[in-house]
Design a protein around this nucleic acid. Structure first.
Lengths: 205, 205
DNA sequence: AGGAAACTGTGAATAAATTAACAATAATTT
DNA sequence: AAATTATTGTTAATTTATTCACAGTTTCCT
Protein backbone atom coordinates (compact mmCIF):
# COMPACT_ATOMS: atom_id res chain seq x y z
CA UNK A 1 0.00 0.00 0.00
CA UNK A 2 1.53 3.25 -1.18
CA UNK A 3 1.73 6.40 0.90
CA UNK A 4 -1.19 8.74 0.43
CA UNK A 5 0.88 11.58 -0.94
CA UNK A 6 2.52 9.28 -3.46
CA UNK A 7 -0.86 8.13 -4.73
CA UNK A 8 -1.90 11.74 -5.17
CA UNK A 9 1.22 12.61 -7.05
CA UNK A 10 0.92 9.59 -9.31
CA UNK A 11 -2.58 10.66 -10.22
CA UNK A 12 -1.27 14.12 -11.00
CA UNK A 13 1.64 12.82 -13.03
CA UNK A 14 -0.73 10.72 -15.04
CA UNK A 15 -2.76 13.68 -16.10
CA UNK A 16 0.35 15.47 -17.31
CA UNK A 17 1.46 12.34 -19.08
CA UNK A 18 -1.85 12.03 -20.89
CA UNK A 19 -1.41 15.61 -21.94
CA UNK A 20 2.06 14.78 -23.26
CA UNK A 21 0.63 11.91 -25.23
CA UNK A 22 -1.86 14.23 -26.88
CA UNK A 23 0.94 16.56 -27.82
CA UNK A 24 2.90 13.69 -29.31
CA UNK A 25 5.63 13.78 -26.70
CA UNK A 26 6.80 10.19 -26.24
CA UNK A 27 9.39 10.55 -23.48
CA UNK A 28 9.71 12.75 -20.43
CA UNK A 29 12.51 13.38 -17.93
CA UNK A 30 12.04 13.31 -14.20
CA UNK A 31 13.00 16.96 -13.96
CA UNK A 32 10.34 17.90 -16.50
CA UNK A 33 7.60 16.18 -14.57
CA UNK A 34 8.99 17.75 -11.42
CA UNK A 35 8.82 21.24 -12.79
CA UNK A 36 5.25 20.76 -13.97
CA UNK A 37 4.21 19.60 -10.53
CA UNK A 38 6.19 21.95 -8.34
CA UNK A 39 8.40 19.30 -6.85
CA UNK A 40 11.86 17.86 -7.37
CA UNK A 41 13.28 15.39 -9.85
CA UNK A 42 14.31 13.11 -7.02
CA UNK A 43 10.79 13.09 -5.68
CA UNK A 44 9.46 12.09 -9.06
CA UNK A 45 12.01 9.33 -9.43
CA UNK A 46 11.30 8.08 -5.94
CA UNK A 47 7.56 7.99 -6.64
CA UNK A 48 8.15 6.08 -9.84
CA UNK A 49 10.54 3.76 -8.07
CA UNK A 50 7.72 2.97 -5.62
CA UNK A 51 5.65 1.53 -8.41
CA UNK A 52 8.57 -0.43 -9.76
CA UNK A 53 8.80 1.13 -13.16
CA UNK A 54 12.17 1.77 -14.71
CA UNK A 55 12.86 3.84 -17.72
CA UNK A 56 15.01 3.62 -20.74
CA UNK A 57 18.04 5.16 -19.15
CA UNK A 58 19.05 8.50 -20.48
CA UNK A 59 15.93 8.96 -22.64
CA UNK A 60 13.56 9.73 -19.83
CA UNK A 61 10.41 7.78 -19.09
CA UNK A 62 8.32 6.33 -21.87
CA UNK A 63 5.12 8.32 -21.55
CA UNK A 64 2.76 5.62 -22.72
CA UNK A 65 4.34 2.90 -20.62
CA UNK A 66 4.32 5.06 -17.52
CA UNK A 67 0.66 5.89 -18.01
CA UNK A 68 -0.07 2.18 -18.19
CA UNK A 69 1.95 1.34 -15.10
CA UNK A 70 0.27 4.09 -13.10
CA UNK A 71 -3.05 2.79 -14.39
CA UNK A 72 -2.27 -0.67 -13.08
CA UNK A 73 -1.65 0.81 -9.67
CA UNK A 74 -4.49 3.30 -9.45
CA UNK A 75 -7.29 1.85 -11.50
CA UNK A 76 -9.26 -1.24 -10.82
CA UNK A 77 -9.98 -3.52 -13.72
CA UNK A 78 -13.71 -2.96 -13.94
CA UNK A 79 -13.69 0.67 -12.85
CA UNK A 80 -15.48 2.06 -9.83
CA UNK A 81 -18.94 3.52 -9.69
CA UNK A 82 -19.61 6.83 -8.04
CA UNK A 83 -22.70 8.65 -6.77
CA UNK A 84 -23.11 12.35 -6.11
CA UNK A 85 -25.20 13.08 -3.05
CA UNK A 86 -26.88 16.48 -3.08
CA UNK A 87 -27.77 18.21 -6.31
CA UNK A 88 -27.21 21.84 -5.37
CA UNK A 89 -24.85 24.14 -7.23
CA UNK A 90 -21.80 22.26 -6.13
CA UNK A 91 -23.26 18.84 -6.83
CA UNK A 92 -24.22 19.87 -10.34
CA UNK A 93 -20.83 21.43 -10.93
CA UNK A 94 -19.02 18.33 -9.72
CA UNK A 95 -21.18 16.04 -11.83
CA UNK A 96 -20.69 18.08 -14.97
CA UNK A 97 -17.02 18.44 -14.26
CA UNK A 98 -16.46 14.72 -13.98
CA UNK A 99 -18.34 13.38 -16.92
CA UNK A 100 -15.91 12.11 -19.48
CA UNK A 101 -12.81 12.95 -17.47
CA UNK A 102 -11.79 9.51 -16.23
CA UNK A 103 -13.23 6.43 -17.82
CA UNK A 104 -12.45 4.23 -14.82
CA UNK A 105 -14.61 6.32 -12.51
CA UNK A 106 -18.22 6.41 -13.58
CA UNK A 107 -20.78 8.71 -12.08
CA UNK A 108 -23.81 6.46 -12.06
CA UNK A 109 -26.42 8.54 -10.30
CA UNK A 110 -27.12 11.61 -8.22
CA UNK A 111 -29.33 11.68 -5.15
CA UNK A 112 -31.33 14.36 -3.41
CA UNK A 113 -34.11 14.72 -0.87
CA UNK A 114 -35.75 17.55 -2.76
CA UNK A 115 -38.60 15.87 -4.64
CA UNK A 116 -38.60 18.56 -7.33
CA UNK A 117 -35.15 17.39 -8.37
CA UNK A 118 -35.96 13.71 -8.71
CA UNK A 119 -35.66 12.36 -12.25
CA UNK A 120 -33.90 15.46 -13.42
CA UNK A 121 -30.94 14.63 -15.64
CA UNK A 122 -27.63 16.48 -15.31
CA UNK A 123 -24.98 15.78 -17.90
CA UNK A 124 -26.68 12.51 -18.63
CA UNK A 125 -26.87 11.44 -14.99
CA UNK A 126 -30.26 10.97 -13.41
CA UNK A 127 -31.30 12.10 -9.95
CA UNK A 128 -32.88 9.64 -7.53
CA UNK A 129 -34.53 10.12 -4.15
CA UNK A 130 -32.21 9.47 -1.23
CA UNK A 131 -34.57 6.78 -0.07
CA UNK A 132 -33.48 4.66 -3.00
CA UNK A 133 -29.79 4.98 -2.17
CA UNK A 134 -29.24 1.56 -0.68
CA UNK A 135 -31.10 -0.22 -3.44
CA UNK A 136 -29.13 1.65 -6.10
CA UNK A 137 -25.79 1.13 -4.37
CA UNK A 138 -26.41 -2.58 -4.36
CA UNK A 139 -27.86 -2.95 -7.83
CA UNK A 140 -25.27 -0.72 -9.50
CA UNK A 141 -22.30 -1.61 -7.32
CA UNK A 142 -21.66 1.98 -6.35
CA UNK A 143 -18.71 2.11 -4.02
CA UNK A 144 -17.85 5.80 -3.76
CA UNK A 145 -19.98 8.80 -2.80
CA UNK A 146 -19.31 12.48 -3.28
CA UNK A 147 -21.09 14.51 -0.61
CA UNK A 148 -22.33 17.90 -1.72
CA UNK A 149 -25.30 18.32 0.60
CA UNK A 150 -25.85 21.34 2.85
CA UNK A 151 -23.89 21.28 6.11
CA UNK A 152 -27.05 20.77 8.14
CA UNK A 153 -27.87 17.38 6.70
CA UNK A 154 -24.32 16.11 6.24
CA UNK A 155 -24.11 14.03 9.40
CA UNK A 156 -27.42 12.32 8.85
CA UNK A 157 -26.82 11.61 5.19
CA UNK A 158 -23.40 10.15 5.89
CA UNK A 159 -24.90 7.48 8.14
CA UNK A 160 -27.16 6.50 5.25
CA UNK A 161 -24.14 6.20 3.01
CA UNK A 162 -22.40 3.85 5.38
CA UNK A 163 -25.53 1.77 5.88
CA UNK A 164 -25.97 1.56 2.15
CA UNK A 165 -22.54 -0.01 1.86
CA UNK A 166 -20.50 2.86 0.43
CA UNK A 167 -16.77 2.23 0.82
CA UNK A 168 -15.27 5.62 0.11
CA UNK A 169 -16.52 9.16 0.65
CA UNK A 170 -15.32 12.45 -0.73
CA UNK A 171 -16.79 15.09 1.53
CA UNK A 172 -17.19 18.62 0.20
CA UNK A 173 -19.30 19.63 3.14
CA UNK A 174 -17.97 22.05 5.75
CA UNK A 175 -18.78 19.49 8.44
CA UNK A 176 -16.27 16.76 9.22
CA UNK A 177 -18.03 13.42 8.97
CA UNK A 178 -17.91 10.40 11.21
CA UNK A 179 -17.94 7.17 9.25
CA UNK A 180 -17.26 3.54 10.02
CA UNK A 181 -13.54 2.75 10.25
CA UNK A 182 -13.56 0.62 7.11
CA UNK A 183 -14.87 3.50 5.02
CA UNK A 184 -12.17 5.61 3.45
CA UNK A 185 -12.91 9.28 3.95
CA UNK A 186 -11.36 12.27 2.26
CA UNK A 187 -12.51 15.72 3.23
CA UNK A 188 -11.96 18.79 1.19
CA UNK A 189 -12.93 22.17 2.40
CA UNK A 190 -12.37 25.11 0.12
CA UNK A 191 -12.72 27.58 2.91
CA UNK A 192 -9.77 25.97 4.62
CA UNK A 193 -7.82 26.17 1.37
CA UNK A 194 -8.62 29.83 1.02
CA UNK A 195 -7.84 30.59 4.62
CA UNK A 196 -4.52 28.85 4.20
CA UNK A 197 -3.73 30.91 1.11
CA UNK A 198 -4.79 34.05 2.95
CA UNK A 199 -2.47 33.18 5.82
CA UNK A 200 0.55 32.65 3.59
CA UNK A 201 -0.19 35.68 1.44
CA UNK A 202 -0.42 37.77 4.57
CA UNK A 203 2.58 36.20 6.30
CA UNK A 204 4.95 36.02 3.33
CA UNK A 205 4.03 39.34 1.80
CA UNK B 1 5.45 30.99 9.94
CA UNK B 2 3.41 27.93 10.82
CA UNK B 3 3.61 24.63 8.95
CA UNK B 4 1.07 24.33 6.18
CA UNK B 5 -0.72 21.37 7.72
CA UNK B 6 -1.03 23.17 11.02
CA UNK B 7 -2.63 26.16 9.33
CA UNK B 8 -5.13 23.87 7.66
CA UNK B 9 -6.01 22.17 10.89
CA UNK B 10 -6.42 25.44 12.72
CA UNK B 11 -8.88 26.56 10.08
CA UNK B 12 -10.76 23.32 10.52
CA UNK B 13 -10.74 23.54 14.28
CA UNK B 14 -12.13 27.02 14.10
CA UNK B 15 -15.12 25.90 12.14
CA UNK B 16 -15.92 23.27 14.72
CA UNK B 17 -15.40 25.80 17.48
CA UNK B 18 -17.83 28.21 15.86
CA UNK B 19 -20.30 25.37 15.73
CA UNK B 20 -19.73 24.72 19.43
CA UNK B 21 -20.40 28.35 20.18
CA UNK B 22 -23.71 28.16 18.38
CA UNK B 23 -24.64 25.15 20.42
CA UNK B 24 -23.75 26.96 23.62
CA UNK B 25 -20.75 24.78 24.40
CA UNK B 26 -18.22 27.00 26.15
CA UNK B 27 -15.30 24.63 26.66
CA UNK B 28 -13.84 21.79 24.67
CA UNK B 29 -11.19 19.16 25.41
CA UNK B 30 -8.34 18.36 23.10
CA UNK B 31 -9.62 14.82 22.66
CA UNK B 32 -13.03 16.10 21.60
CA UNK B 33 -11.58 18.30 18.89
CA UNK B 34 -9.36 15.41 17.88
CA UNK B 35 -12.24 13.04 17.43
CA UNK B 36 -14.17 15.54 15.35
CA UNK B 37 -11.21 15.99 13.05
CA UNK B 38 -9.94 12.45 12.79
CA UNK B 39 -6.69 13.08 14.56
CA UNK B 40 -5.20 12.71 18.01
CA UNK B 41 -5.46 14.77 21.16
CA UNK B 42 -1.71 15.26 21.15
CA UNK B 43 -1.87 16.64 17.65
CA UNK B 44 -4.53 19.11 18.67
CA UNK B 45 -2.57 20.21 21.72
CA UNK B 46 0.57 20.59 19.66
CA UNK B 47 -1.23 22.71 17.07
CA UNK B 48 -2.63 24.91 19.80
CA UNK B 49 0.77 25.10 21.45
CA UNK B 50 2.12 26.42 18.15
CA UNK B 51 -0.11 29.45 18.38
CA UNK B 52 0.79 30.00 22.00
CA UNK B 53 -2.62 29.61 23.53
CA UNK B 54 -2.97 27.90 26.86
CA UNK B 55 -6.17 26.75 28.39
CA UNK B 56 -7.70 26.74 31.80
CA UNK B 57 -6.12 23.53 32.89
CA UNK B 58 -8.46 20.67 33.42
CA UNK B 59 -11.51 22.48 31.96
CA UNK B 60 -10.50 22.20 28.35
CA UNK B 61 -10.06 25.11 25.98
CA UNK B 62 -12.30 28.14 26.20
CA UNK B 63 -14.14 28.01 22.89
CA UNK B 64 -14.56 31.72 22.41
CA UNK B 65 -10.98 32.56 23.36
CA UNK B 66 -9.58 29.88 21.09
CA UNK B 67 -11.64 31.15 18.17
CA UNK B 68 -10.19 34.61 18.77
CA UNK B 69 -6.62 33.38 19.01
CA UNK B 70 -6.97 31.38 15.81
CA UNK B 71 -8.50 34.46 14.21
CA UNK B 72 -5.47 36.52 15.18
CA UNK B 73 -3.25 34.00 13.45
CA UNK B 74 -5.27 33.29 10.33
CA UNK B 75 -7.17 36.47 9.58
CA UNK B 76 -5.76 39.78 8.55
CA UNK B 77 -7.19 42.84 10.18
CA UNK B 78 -8.92 44.29 7.14
CA UNK B 79 -9.82 40.99 5.51
CA UNK B 80 -8.69 39.85 2.09
CA UNK B 81 -10.48 40.33 -1.20
CA UNK B 82 -11.03 37.47 -3.57
CA UNK B 83 -11.96 37.13 -7.23
CA UNK B 84 -13.40 34.11 -9.00
CA UNK B 85 -12.02 33.65 -12.49
CA UNK B 86 -14.28 31.69 -14.80
CA UNK B 87 -18.04 31.68 -14.35
CA UNK B 88 -18.89 28.15 -15.44
CA UNK B 89 -20.70 25.64 -13.27
CA UNK B 90 -17.86 25.36 -10.84
CA UNK B 91 -17.23 29.09 -10.65
CA UNK B 92 -20.87 29.76 -9.88
CA UNK B 93 -20.95 26.98 -7.31
CA UNK B 94 -17.85 28.27 -5.59
CA UNK B 95 -19.13 31.82 -5.54
CA UNK B 96 -22.49 30.84 -4.11
CA UNK B 97 -20.84 28.52 -1.65
CA UNK B 98 -18.60 31.21 -0.26
CA UNK B 99 -20.93 34.10 0.17
CA UNK B 100 -21.51 34.68 3.84
CA UNK B 101 -19.28 31.86 5.01
CA UNK B 102 -16.22 33.83 6.18
CA UNK B 103 -16.48 37.51 6.77
CA UNK B 104 -12.75 38.04 6.47
CA UNK B 105 -12.65 36.74 2.92
CA UNK B 106 -14.78 38.76 0.56
CA UNK B 107 -15.59 37.71 -2.95
CA UNK B 108 -15.50 41.03 -4.72
CA UNK B 109 -15.99 40.09 -8.35
CA UNK B 110 -16.09 37.32 -10.89
CA UNK B 111 -14.42 37.45 -14.29
CA UNK B 112 -15.03 35.73 -17.58
CA UNK B 113 -14.12 36.07 -21.24
CA UNK B 114 -17.60 35.12 -22.40
CA UNK B 115 -19.26 38.43 -23.23
CA UNK B 116 -22.72 37.03 -22.58
CA UNK B 117 -21.80 36.59 -18.94
CA UNK B 118 -20.53 40.10 -18.34
CA UNK B 119 -22.60 42.11 -15.86
CA UNK B 120 -24.47 39.05 -14.75
CA UNK B 121 -24.82 38.92 -10.96
CA UNK B 122 -24.35 35.69 -9.02
CA UNK B 123 -25.16 35.71 -5.34
CA UNK B 124 -24.70 39.43 -5.37
CA UNK B 125 -21.34 39.33 -7.11
CA UNK B 126 -20.99 40.92 -10.51
CA UNK B 127 -19.14 39.49 -13.49
CA UNK B 128 -16.52 41.58 -15.30
CA UNK B 129 -14.62 41.00 -18.52
CA UNK B 130 -11.17 39.52 -18.00
CA UNK B 131 -9.70 42.55 -19.70
CA UNK B 132 -10.65 44.61 -16.66
CA UNK B 133 -8.89 42.29 -14.24
CA UNK B 134 -5.82 44.38 -13.56
CA UNK B 135 -7.78 47.54 -13.10
CA UNK B 136 -10.16 45.82 -10.67
CA UNK B 137 -7.38 44.10 -8.75
CA UNK B 138 -5.76 47.45 -8.17
CA UNK B 139 -8.84 49.48 -7.41
CA UNK B 140 -10.39 46.87 -5.12
CA UNK B 141 -7.20 45.49 -3.60
CA UNK B 142 -7.98 41.95 -4.66
CA UNK B 143 -5.16 39.69 -3.54
CA UNK B 144 -6.50 36.17 -4.09
CA UNK B 145 -7.93 34.50 -7.17
CA UNK B 146 -9.91 31.29 -7.47
CA UNK B 147 -9.37 29.71 -10.87
CA UNK B 148 -12.36 27.89 -12.30
CA UNK B 149 -11.71 28.32 -15.99
CA UNK B 150 -11.59 25.46 -18.52
CA UNK B 151 -8.30 23.57 -18.64
CA UNK B 152 -7.49 24.95 -22.05
CA UNK B 153 -7.24 28.56 -20.98
CA UNK B 154 -5.77 27.98 -17.51
CA UNK B 155 -2.15 28.64 -18.37
CA UNK B 156 -2.87 31.84 -20.24
CA UNK B 157 -5.25 33.21 -17.64
CA UNK B 158 -2.82 32.51 -14.84
CA UNK B 159 -0.20 34.75 -16.43
CA UNK B 160 -2.79 37.54 -16.45
CA UNK B 161 -3.40 36.96 -12.77
CA UNK B 162 0.23 37.32 -11.92
CA UNK B 163 0.59 40.42 -14.09
CA UNK B 164 -2.44 41.91 -12.43
CA UNK B 165 -0.73 41.58 -9.05
CA UNK B 166 -2.59 38.66 -7.53
CA UNK B 167 -0.71 37.22 -4.56
CA UNK B 168 -2.45 33.90 -3.97
CA UNK B 169 -4.17 31.47 -6.30
CA UNK B 170 -6.50 28.59 -5.60
CA UNK B 171 -6.47 26.50 -8.75
CA UNK B 172 -9.43 24.20 -9.39
CA UNK B 173 -8.28 23.54 -12.92
CA UNK B 174 -6.93 20.13 -13.91
CA UNK B 175 -3.81 21.84 -15.22
CA UNK B 176 -0.98 22.60 -12.80
CA UNK B 177 -0.13 26.27 -13.10
CA UNK B 178 3.19 28.04 -13.29
CA UNK B 179 3.20 31.26 -11.33
CA UNK B 180 5.86 33.67 -10.14
CA UNK B 181 7.70 32.42 -7.05
CA UNK B 182 6.23 35.09 -4.79
CA UNK B 183 2.68 34.01 -5.61
CA UNK B 184 1.30 31.41 -3.25
CA UNK B 185 -0.37 28.62 -5.18
CA UNK B 186 -2.66 25.91 -3.93
CA UNK B 187 -3.96 23.37 -6.38
CA UNK B 188 -6.93 21.18 -5.76
CA UNK B 189 -7.95 18.54 -8.17
CA UNK B 190 -11.04 16.52 -7.39
CA UNK B 191 -10.14 13.84 -9.85
CA UNK B 192 -6.97 13.19 -7.91
CA UNK B 193 -9.00 13.04 -4.71
CA UNK B 194 -11.37 10.54 -6.26
CA UNK B 195 -8.58 8.46 -7.72
CA UNK B 196 -6.94 8.38 -4.33
CA UNK B 197 -10.15 7.21 -2.71
CA UNK B 198 -10.59 4.63 -5.42
CA UNK B 199 -7.08 3.34 -4.81
CA UNK B 200 -7.57 2.95 -1.08
CA UNK B 201 -11.03 1.46 -1.44
CA UNK B 202 -9.65 -1.06 -3.87
CA UNK B 203 -6.47 -1.77 -1.91
CA UNK B 204 -7.94 -1.90 1.59
CA UNK B 205 -11.15 -3.67 0.70
C1' DA C 1 37.58 4.95 -29.47
C1' DG C 2 37.87 7.62 -25.34
C1' DG C 3 36.17 11.17 -22.52
C1' DA C 4 32.53 14.21 -21.15
C1' DA C 5 27.73 14.98 -20.27
C1' DA C 6 23.05 13.79 -18.97
C1' DC C 7 19.98 10.97 -16.53
C1' DT C 8 18.30 7.36 -13.58
C1' DG C 9 17.96 4.50 -9.37
C1' DT C 10 18.90 4.12 -4.74
C1' DG C 11 21.41 3.81 -0.03
C1' DA C 12 22.37 7.09 3.40
C1' DA C 13 21.45 11.48 5.60
C1' DT C 14 18.38 14.97 6.90
C1' DA C 15 14.31 17.22 7.93
C1' DA C 16 9.54 17.32 9.12
C1' DA C 17 5.59 15.53 11.24
C1' DT C 18 3.57 12.69 14.49
C1' DT C 19 3.29 10.07 18.63
C1' DA C 20 4.72 8.50 23.18
C1' DA C 21 5.69 9.53 27.74
C1' DC C 22 5.30 12.05 31.61
C1' DA C 23 5.59 15.98 34.95
C1' DA C 24 2.56 19.57 36.43
C1' DT C 25 -1.78 21.01 37.89
C1' DA C 26 -6.60 21.50 38.81
C1' DA C 27 -10.86 19.29 40.00
C1' DT C 28 -13.24 15.52 42.35
C1' DT C 29 -13.80 11.92 45.52
C1' DT C 30 -13.25 9.68 49.84
C1' DA D 1 -7.09 17.10 53.52
C1' DA D 2 -5.18 13.32 51.22
C1' DA D 3 -5.66 10.41 47.39
C1' DT D 4 -7.38 9.84 42.90
C1' DT D 5 -8.54 11.23 38.42
C1' DA D 6 -8.46 13.95 34.25
C1' DT D 7 -6.28 16.93 31.42
C1' DT D 8 -2.76 19.99 29.62
C1' DG D 9 1.97 21.36 27.91
C1' DT D 10 6.21 19.81 26.46
C1' DT D 11 10.56 17.02 25.93
C1' DA D 12 12.12 13.10 23.85
C1' DA D 13 11.51 9.24 20.66
C1' DT D 14 9.78 7.58 16.57
C1' DT D 15 8.11 7.45 12.19
C1' DT D 16 7.44 9.32 7.72
C1' DA D 17 8.78 12.13 3.92
C1' DT D 18 12.16 14.48 1.47
C1' DT D 19 16.68 15.48 -0.10
C1' DC D 20 21.60 14.53 -0.84
C1' DA D 21 25.12 12.23 -2.97
C1' DC D 22 26.82 9.26 -6.04
C1' DA D 23 27.50 4.89 -8.76
C1' DG D 24 25.90 3.08 -13.06
C1' DT D 25 24.25 3.73 -17.75
C1' DT D 26 23.61 5.48 -22.07
C1' DT D 27 24.33 8.93 -25.35
C1' DC D 28 26.88 12.52 -27.39
C1' DC D 29 30.98 14.80 -28.78
C1' DT D 30 35.69 15.15 -30.47
Amino acid sequence: MLPERTVERLSEYRRSLLQCLEEGKTHIFSHELAELHHNTAVQVRRDIMFIGYTSMQRKGYDVRELIDVIGEILDSEEGLNVAVIGVGNLGRAVTTYFIGKRSKLNIIATFDVDTTKIDRVISGVKCYPLSRLKEMVESHKISIAIMTVPAGSAAEVSTHLVEAGIKGVLNFTTVPLQVAPDVYLDEYDMITSLEKIAYFVKTAG
